[in-house]
Amino acid sequence: MENESKFIAKLKNKESQNKSFEILLSKYKEPIYWHIRKIVLDHDDAHDVLQNTFIKVFKAINGFKEQSKLYTWIYRIATNESLNFIKSKAKKHFKTSEEIMIAQTNKLKEDPYFDGDELQIKLQELINTLPVKQKLVFQMKYEQEMKFKDISEILGTSEGALKASYHIAVKKIKKEIIKIQTF
């Protein structure tokens, strides 16, 4: 992609906006989809959140102050939209977000868009029992191999705190996986 500032200016310009937004979509739709999908797990939910995310990006681009990179800003919106989606779903079903995610993990066995054995489903279950910040940092670091610096910008948390959260998450998961593997 060309110089980011120039590209953002084109996104803000009404005449070049649609074409630039198509370029933005083609570059980010897949990584953002997978980021959302790992949070919400279900494909249909991920599709809804993906649409909401890009609608918000489209609506809010004029207010983007370029204090962070464009891609971390989009990831930040996607993360917040995913978490808000889970919260709304939980409210609708009179459950907590954690209960919703555990139910969602249990559905993975029958999900036509998920291939995984018992251990992989168990791992998803473990990830979804982590507190939100630990879960997000684990997914972004372990699965998406993002840099702590970028995760820090997306989640608005210091790198030190993220590294500590990742360390705790890894320890918890490691402990449970060892338990499963020894039985």
Binding site: E30, Q51, I55, F58, I121, L123
Partner: peptide, 25 residues
């Protein structure tokens, strides 16, 4: 450990374009 294989419907990403986003809104 591999985290399991999450999939999408065939040609799903081709359906994500600007029309879908603006039309939904």
């Amino acid at each position: 450990i591999e985290l399991g294989d999450f999939k999408v419907p065939e040609n799903y990403f081709e359906t994500i374009n600007i029309n879908l986003i603006t039309k939904t809104n």
